[in-house]
Amino acid sequence: MSDPLTAAPQAGALATWLAAPVPASRAQAQAQQFWRAAWRLRYNISALFGLGIILLLLLVAFFAPLIATHDIYAQDLASRLQRPSFSHYFGTDELGRDIFSRVIFGSRITLYIALLTAAIAAPLGLVVGTAAGYLGGWIDIVLMRIVDVFLAFPSLILALAFVAALGPGIENSVIAISLASWPPIARLARAETLTIRTSDYVAAARLQGASSWQIIWSDIVPMCIPSVIVRITLNMAAIILTAAGLGFLGLGAQPPSPEWGAMLSTGREFMLTNWWIAAVPGCSILVASLAFNLFGDGLRDILDPRHG
């Protein structure tokens, strides 16, 4: 592997600041680290490809009203189950709604679920994992047993149980999937913490009289963040699939929402007669999930090479 710094452009003050051999501040150090990582990403075609799709998805979600060609709720029983054509790019569904427009709007729901779940699960897992790892003792034992209990359920089953208990709907799906996806992150963060807590700089901070929470917050958490980011990016793919699975089983987004899993579930009935109704949301799920996987995989190579 070539040294990323030597390959970086060497012009301008910013570049100099980013390339300074000894960072002057914590912020600079972090910015440098980030820059190096981002710079190295340029070699990773598949990761860039994944990132490209994610950005495209975000754009599509943001500009959905401009891209969509039809009202996503407007039904027309007379023109139901139409094949893809110029008036309906992806055909129409069982109630005559335009599938193209629905898929476009569906990206909003999928991204909303994935990002919100990540935003809940990652901090939760991070806090639990670092606390358990750093504090050790009983706290560690209790927290890790809780993590074990959650891990002992397959995540779809756990999400299924929570959604069944909370009632169906997007918000409840988010809660349920979050509850099912924080434990692996906690476990990862704990493992990281165990390796960090014996390091010299943590010992130094301790000698300077920093409290446990201070150390966790300012020394341990930042060190765990790269691997957690990798993990959660990879998890987003799993989250998208779980959300789709819940939608597929009828427990996720409720009709007439154009959630991809729910659309797929409807399309399942028409697999043999009108294949596009299932194929379009199916491919959308595949593409979105694949994008996060590709990007996460690339990130892992860069940020967290130990777990290859």
């Binding site: 598949s46 797929l264 399942r268 697999m271 043999l272 299932a278 595949l286 999930s289």
Partner: peptide, 24 residues
Amino acid sequence: HVVRMIGLIGYSTPTFWLGLMGLT
């Protein structure tokens, strides 16, 4: 790249959809 791609597609495909397609 091909191997990783196959692997990632494996991770990313909704099983139930793949199953129905396979049956068809």
